[in-house]
Design a protein around this nucleic acid. Structure first.
Length: 110
DNA sequence: GGTCTGACCGTGT
DNA sequence: CACACGGCCAGAC
């Protein structure tokens, strides 16, 4: 691919997350061809949180848990953002995660 | 150029 | 059901 930057790939996928939807790190990792590097996805998202084009708040772990909320400024910013999009969030967990889950590969575009 | 860390995931006890 | 360990990869020191 043109972009060899691992980070850029993660940002691209995360950026494609539709409104009111969430996905998991593993799904993104798999979408970029690094299913075994889900950790890298989260690591890359660290810089994504600074980019408005990359809704890191829509990315949660496999359990639908807002594991990355601790990295966001404020206390419940991530949760508030999700609720603002119509996503039910209780505590640090996304409700109906399975229903709101969005598969990047489902986007099917390249 | 070796070592440590990290917003994960899966499996085992 | 809760905790522990391993793996896999890339970036920072």
């Amino acid at each position: 691919m043109a972009k060899d930057n691992f980070y850029h790939r993660v940002y691209e996928v995360a950026r494609q997350i539709p409104y009111g939807r969430v996905t998991s790190y593993g799904a993104i990792a798999k979408a970029i061809g690094a299913a075994k590097s889900a950790r890298m996805v989260g690591y890359a998202m660290n810089g994504a949180s600074a980019l408005e084009d990359v809704p890191a708040h829509r990315v949660v772990n496999r359990n639908g848990l807002l594991t990355g909320k601790h990295h966001f400024p404020g206390t419940h910013l991530m949760q508030q953002l999700l609720e603002s999009e119509g996503i039910e969030v209780e505590g640090d967990k996304v409700q109906d995660f399975k229903a709101l889950f969005w598969d990047p590969k489902s986007d099917s575009k390249k």
